[in-house]
Write a protein that binds this DNA or RNA. Structure first.
Ligand SMILES: [Zn+2]
Ligand SMILES: [Zn+2]
Length: 472
DNA sequence: AATCAAGGCCAC
DNA sequence: GTGGCCTTGATT
């Protein structure tokens, strides 16, 4: 009779889970050290974090608890009303509520191995790394972009921002390895059969869901794999392996986690913030994410840094708009969001690069995309096509870009042909949208630059660097 | 060789 | 059952 525990909370692995964050901690630490992560508290019980465990940073005991629970398929019950408070001193009292909280904060069942293999890395490894990078970035932003900070000494030269970002990313190995092992990708290109991709969903298959807990959870565990399922179920197994690989390299949940994490951190304990300034910060973070994705993306990562810069400088704003469209269309990103301080933030304006007059073109593009059933595989392909634009002037290795472009186009063409026979000219209609998005992004950039000249936008950001770069 | 998350061990 | 500490092993 128990109504299952599915709680699809929107808390991703990164950023602050709802009930946690700085506020709930028993003591307010005065100096959030700049070295290590700020929140070193277990989101489940508040104990000290010992590392990433099953999807996020938790303490050692909750790691062990989660492991035992899943491995042994424990079914607990709560003697109260299933809302017991879990903290370090009381966590042993109600395992039901403890496990419930584990799931709420985002601990991943799939990370518990059915075969009990020890050591090594799983598919979350790259995510952990990206999460670390993102935390650092948010933290940096937090202390460097505080309103009216005294430190006016912008010592660093304004040049070479993009290049710097790319190189920094390389040196500090922000994400030096792609989320997907190169072998399956190469195989998907060269061999029709398919690549031996061991591991994968191991626990799901072998852990028999005889407990109501797990049955509901395994089926309800759509959060992360939502788009994967989407891609896989669009039309059986008709998604070309290349595109499937692209889709799997996405990490949408992190996108929204990063967004809301930034919104929260920027407005927490603030009575009122400049919403345009906030918008710029969000765009800046998106941009950083964009560069990070591009760096590790297929085709692009093989290019020299100079070419990478040229492509990014040409496509960054298009990519931002496309990503927002994708989040709105496929990931239920709302039009606005209430900030912790009570202000409302217009999420829709992110798609407009802040420019109000772009609302109409955006609406138009959105309608056209909806009409042709624009889906996640389509989105990934367009993303690649935007980035790998062989029309960009001055490319050293233009040939590589052309080939990449052709391969993606071919894959997308095949996909639409196989899966969307009932939508005539879907492929052509999709490509026709690219110029329109580009027109929007150009206007958006003009707008942002204009605002920047008026001193409305934060300086010293990658966003501003991009705006300047194209202008000279 | 170093990392570090996953599983194992075993007093408590 | 807990949870601190240990071993493992793919990844870098
Ligand atoms: Zn804990
Ligand atoms: Zn309880």
């Amino acid at each position: 009779m128990d109504p299952i525990v599915i709680v699809p909370s929107l808390s991703g692995p990164s950023s602050l889970p709802p009930g946690t964050s700085g506020g709930s901690s028993t003591g307010r630490h005065d100096l959030p050290d700049t070295k290590e992560g700020i929140e070193e508290l277990c989101p489940v019980c508040g104990d000290k974090v010992s590392g990433y465990h099953y999807g996020l940073l938790t303490c050692e005991s909750c790691k062990g608890f989660f492991k035992r629970t899943v491995q042994n398929k424990k079914a607990y019950s709560c003697v109260a009303d299933r809302s017991c408070h879990i903290d370090k001193s009381q966590r042993k009292r109600c395992p039901y509520c403890r496990f419930q909280k584990c799931l709420e904060v985002g601990m991943k069942l799939e990370a518990v191995r059915a075969d009990r293999m020890r050591g090594g890395r799983n598919k979350f490894g790259p995510m952990y790394k990206r999460d670390r990078a993102r935390k650092l970035q948010v933290m940096r932003e937090r202390q460097l972009t505080t309103p009216r900070g005294g430190g006016g000494g912008g010592g660093s030269s304004s040049g070479g921002g993009v290049k710097h970002e790319i190189q920094i990313a390389q040196v500090s190995s922000l994400t030096s390895s792609p989320d997907s092992s190169p072998s399956p990708l190469a195989a998907s290109l060269g061999y029709p059969g398919g690549a031996p991709t061991p591991q994968q969903h191991s626990s799901t298959s072998s852990v028999s869901p005889k407990t109501f807990h797990f049955e509901g959870l395994l089926t309800g565990n759509v959060q992360h794999s939502q788009l994967l399922l989407h891609a896989g179920s669009v039309s059986g197994a008709k998604v070309p392996p290349l595109i499937r690989e692209f889709v799997q390299s996405l990490d949408d949940k992190e996108w929204q986690s990063a967004l809301f994490g930034l919104l929260q951190s920027q407005t927490y304990n603030q009575c009122e913030v400049d919403l345009f300034e906030l918008l710029c910060k969000v765009l800046d973070q998106n941009l950083f994410t964009q560069v990070d994705w591009a760096r590790n993306s297929y085709y692009f990562k093989d290019l020299k840094v100079d070419d990478q810069m040229k492509l990014l400088q040409h496509a960054w704003s298009d990519l931002l708009i496309l990503d927002h469209l994708h989040q709105r269309l496929h990931n239920h990103l709302p039009d606005e969001s209430s900030l912790p301080n009570g202000q409302k933030f217009d999420l829709l304006s992110l798609s407009l690069l802040g420019c109000p007059s772009l609302a109409e073109p955006l609406h138009d593009v959105t309608a056209r995309l909806t009409e042709i059933r624009f889906d996640v595989p389509d989105y990934v392909c367009l993303k690649f096509l935007m980035l790998l634009n062989s029309d960009v002037k001055g490319l050293m290795n233009r040939r590589h870009v052309v080939e990449a472009q052709e391969q993606v186009q071919q894959a997308l063409f095949d996909y639409t042909l196989n899966c969307y026979t009932h939508i005539p000219d879907k492929f052509a209609k999709m490509l026709a949208i690219l110029p329109d998005i580009h027109a929007m992004s150009s206007r958006g950039e003009e707008y942002l630059y204009f605002k920047h000249l008026n001193g409305c936008a934060p300086t010293q950001t990658l966003l501003m660097e991009m705006l300047h770069a194209k202008r000279k």
